[in-house]
Write a protein that binds this DNA or RNA. Structure first.
Length: 573
DNA sequence: GCCGTTTTCGGCCCGACTGTTTTCAGTCG
């Protein structure tokens, strides 16, 4: 069983334990172990017992459970729980407003263990007799069942970001003094967002009216003076919190998370005789306010350097913050160019000249034009002759856009057997080659791994494009031995792409971090197919930052000469 | 179930909102 599978099982155990009414801290231990396994890059099946126990929050028992899950797909306590509760009972827990206590009561008193059974029971009025069940609660449950399919799951970071901007803009037009910021997973730049969390200070009291009165609000889930939640059309949940200005920093810290980071921070506060909540950091004995207006003040008072939001996943950032070893993270401003984009010659929507002009307008020093190769026939991919003609046209434009150098490249397909779509002598004549997989996504792991390993044997492959081939919510990553592929890329001097297409974000954060620790070099790429999509690099930068990348780790932060010399084709083997 | 610069036992983060409550439990983040 792979890491996501083990993580899912651990999370289900936690859910079932909760329905059972087990010790809350035991439940938390399983949840936290699920998170840790989900965000561990190395397959847990390959970790030794000692390595498993080094994972934070994993002790003797959980290490044994993880081992058993990885090897057999299940484990003894999981089996026991599944004997006790039908697995469909977990469907009930997913309903908005229905928690473990309610599920336990439904099951114990009415034998309800599935959505269908619950629907029937509500309609028959059988819930009426239960403690704490009134007409409103019934209506709430029916509503939750109805909305279940639309609200299930998470959203692309890009979609969450766009929605947050829209909601904040609407509030600002009505509340000019309001200071708004997106917090939560959005601020941490997470790959996907479950909801949008907004924080507001400095607005008049009726800001909540504006928020819940947004015409795109489908349903108001809750409305208070300091906290409201709405469901927008399209299924997005948006939460707005209002705090006084003197608590702004504490609230930003608190609502940015992650949960694990916050728990560790609050624990740290307790150890120092302080307590931390969304209103500030306080001395426990006297109640004196230690910090609150700024995030920096909170971290400083706890003996820590301010931690970039993208690092707040309890993955070593607190140690680094204590010891002055936080990285200076990459930012978009560090990028001097973009090394992956398409034009109308293949499947781009804008011409070579338009793309070059846009690159110049953005202040880039260089861009690589990397249209598709012939295997991508539906994109009008280039064969060797057309590729070289296109390269000549690209190079002929140099001198026309002041300050900008155009590199003639290609995004060359990696074929099913790992050979490249274009002949080596053609690839040798280009300035840069990005090798990518666009077909045969369902090979067995061994075959898929060999395919990529073979491809990067070719000395003219400079960059491995969108390395895992995943498309968020649409296509799983290619089954391959990623640590092995990363190691081979490091050894061969092949840079790893962080592809910025909103639904790719590939490599993802976990593997970026692993690759960095292995000594990899990276490129940040938009994979732009139009002048509008240069901004895709924003999502690559999110992944880079979450993977602890500094500018020096990223080739396209270097001046052109250094960049060229760093490409694999020019590196001494 | 985890963990240790007060602790190997006894702790374990904190608050808002809702509904059915007459003082609070459940849910959520």
């Amino acid at each position: 069983m792979d890491n996501p599978g083990v993580a899912r099982a651990l999370a289900e155990i936690a859910d079932l334990l909760e329905i059972k009414g087990e010790n809350a801290f035991k439940i938390r231990a399983y949840r936290s172990a699920a998170d840790v396994v989900r965000t561990t890059a190395d397959p847990v099946s390959r970790l030794s017992d000692a390595q498993l126990r080094e994972l934070p929050g994993v002790g003797k028992d959980l290490a044994a459970r993880i081992r058993e899950l990885a090897e057999t797909g299940t484990c003894a306590p999981y089996q026991a729980l599944l004997q006790e509760f039908p697995p469909t009972i977990l469907e009930l827990l997913r309903l908005q407003g229905v928690g473990p206590k309610t599920v336990a009561q439904l099951y114990a008193s009415l034998g309800i263990a599935s959505l269908d059974a619950l629907t029937a029971a509500v309609r028959d009025g059988r819930l009426r007799g239960l403690k704490g069940m009134g007409a409103k609660k019934e209506a709430l449950i029916l509503k939750a069942i109805e909305e279940r399919t639309r609200t299930a799951g998470r959203h692309l970071l890009a979609d969450a970001t766009a929605l947050a901007a829209e909601v904040m803009a609407l509030i600002r037009t009505a509340h000019l003094s309001a200071s708004l910021v997106a917090v939560g997973s959005l601020r941490r730049g997470a790959e996907t967002c479950g909801d949008v969390d907004l924080l507001c200070t400095g607005a008049s009291e009726d800001v909540m009216d504006t928020f819940v009165g947004n015409p795109r609000v489908e349903r108001v889930l809750g409305r208070g003076d300091t906290k409201s939640s709405v469901r927008m059309q399209g299924g997005f949940q948006v939460d707005l919190r209002v705090v006084p200005a003197e608590s702004r920093g504490a609230a930003m810290q608190y609502f940015t998370g992650s949960k694990a980071h916050n728990i560790a921070l609050r624990d740290r506060a307790l150890q120092r005789g302080m307590t931390l909540n969304e209103y500030g950091l306080f001395r426990i004995d006297t109640g004196e306010v230690i910090a609150g207006p700024t995030e920096e003040g909170i971290y400083e008072a706890l003996g820590l350097a301010w931690v970039e939001p993208e690092l707040r996943e309890l993955k070593g950032e607190l140690d680094a913050a204590e010891n002055g070893r936080l990285p200076r993270l990459l930012s978009e401003r560090d990028l001097l160019g973009d090394l992956h984009m398409h034009t109308t010659v293949t499947d781009g929507r804008d011409t070579l000249e338009a793309m070059a002009a846009e690159a110049q307008r953005r202040g880039y020093r260089y861009v690589a034009i990397t249209d598709h190769s012939k295997a991508l026939a539906m994109a009008n991919g280039l064969d060797e002759r057309r590729a070289l003609e296109h390269a000549a046209r690209v190079r002929a434009l140099n001198g026309r856009y002041e300050g900008l150098t155009l590199l003639a490249g290609i995004e060359c397909d990696i074929l099913a057997d790992g050979t490249l779509d274009l002949a080596e002598d053609c690839l040798a004549q280009l300035d840069i080659v990005v090798a990518s997989i666009h077909s045969n996504f369902t090979q067995e792991e061994a075959q898929a791994t060999d395919r990529v390993l073979r491809a990067i044997e070719c000395p003219y492959v400079d960059v491995l494009g969108h390395p895992t081939g995943r498309r968020l919510f649409k296509r799983e990553p290619i089954a391959m031995d990623i640590p092995r592929v990363l190691a081979a890329a490091v050894e061969r001097g092949v840079a790893l792409e962080l592809n910025g297409q909103a639904e790719r974000m590939d490599l993802g954060d976990v593997h970026v971090r692993l690759a960095r620790e292995m000594g990899a070099r990276f490129v940040i790429s938009s994979d732009a197919h139009s002048i509008d999509s240069f901004n895709n690099v924003r999502w690559s930068v999110s992944m880079a930052r979450r993977g602890w990348l500094a500018p020096a780790d990223v080739l396209n932060t270097y001046p052109l000469d250094t960049l060229r010399a760093s490409l694999r084709r020019h590196a001494r083997q």
